[in-house]
């Protein structure tokens, strides 16, 4: 008799495969055909995981139509089933998988839109911390290059394609012509969780670089330097007002060991 672990491996592979691979004589189901009953498990797994993917990537579903999405999902599930039982994390690899599908190679907007939708899913699952206001920072000793900590749900995406325009068009419920709505136009998108919804904003290169530096903990001075290098007209004051106004700042403090200080010491 097979050890239980071996038996479970065989059953798991049968459930994920299109065809059952398990020997029928290992199974029983009253008077019914056990391999037919195995199909119930196959259907349950495939359709429940497909439902998860459709819920995470609703605009992508509309871009390719539901039948194709279900086919792509089915292939993805077979090759990359969830590695853990936390389904909130399932789908991270789906945008990359879409990119690898031959028939989608003339519609790069699809995989890129899926990337945006995955970032939205991550942001929705992230914690929303109480924001700091500009007033909160008045009496704090900030030093020469303070650290600004931003909301954990903040996500930044650059795409060569007009992902935010496409995504927004589908939100309004308008009937969008799949082929004329998207363009090869770089879009830099920033998004974060506010309550139980998501806010998405398109930024220019300098403002995007500014936020990107802050998110990666590089400090206010470094972030400002990067932004100015991309656009000498970068307006730091407006950027800070918007940052605080949007509730994106969770803490401001003097840098523990700022870059410029350590340079002077050496």
């Amino acid at each position: 008799m097979l050890p239980l672990e071996h038996l479970q491996t065989i059953v798991a592979r049968s459930v994920l495969a299109m065809e059952p691979t398990i020997a029928a004589n290992l199974l029983t189901a009253g008077k019914a055909d056990p391999l037919a009953r195995l199909r119930i498990y196959q259907n349950n797994t495939r359709s429940s995981l497909t439902a998860v993917l459709m819920a995470v990537f609703p605009v992508t579903v509309r871009l390719v139509d539901e039948r194709f999405f279900r086919y792509a999902a089915s292939e993805f599930i077979r090759r990359h089933p969830p590695a853990e039982s936390r389904l909130a994390r399932y789908g991270a690899g789906f945008p990359r998988f879409l990119k690898s599908i031959d028939t989608l190679s003339d519609m790069p907007i699809v995989a890129e839109t899926a990337r945006l939708e995955w970032a939205i899913a991550e942001a929705l699952d992230a914690v929303s911390l109480p924001p700091r206001s500009l007033g909160d920072c008045e009496n704090i000793e900030l030093g020469t290059s303070p650290d600004i900590l931003v909301q954990p749900s903040l996500r930044l995406i650059v795409s060569h394609w007009s992902i935010l325009s496409v995504w927004s068009a589908h939100q309004q419920g308008a009937a969008v012509d799949r082929h004329s709505a998207w363009a090869r136009r770089a879009e830099r998108v920033v998004l974060w969780r506010a309550g139980d919804s998501i806010r998405l904003v398109q930024l220019d290169r300098a403002n995007f670089a500014f936020l990107h530096s802050l998110k990666h903990g590089l400090g206010l001075e470094h972030a400002t330097g990067r932004a100015l290098a991309l656009d000498p007209a970068f307006d730091l004051v407006s950027a800070l007002v918007r940052l605080f106004g949007n509730g994106l700042v969770t803490n401001v403090r003097a840098a523990a060991n700022s870059h410029s200080n350590s340079w002077r010491q050496s």
């Binding site: 479970q8 491996t9 798991a12 994920l16 498990y41 797994t45 429940s48 089933p81 853990e84």
Partner: peptide, 11 residues
């Protein structure tokens, strides 16, 4: 869970 996969069903 078996074979490194989570099947999202109860077997």
């Amino acid at each position: 869970v078996a074979d490194g996969a989570y099947l999202n069903d109860l077997l």
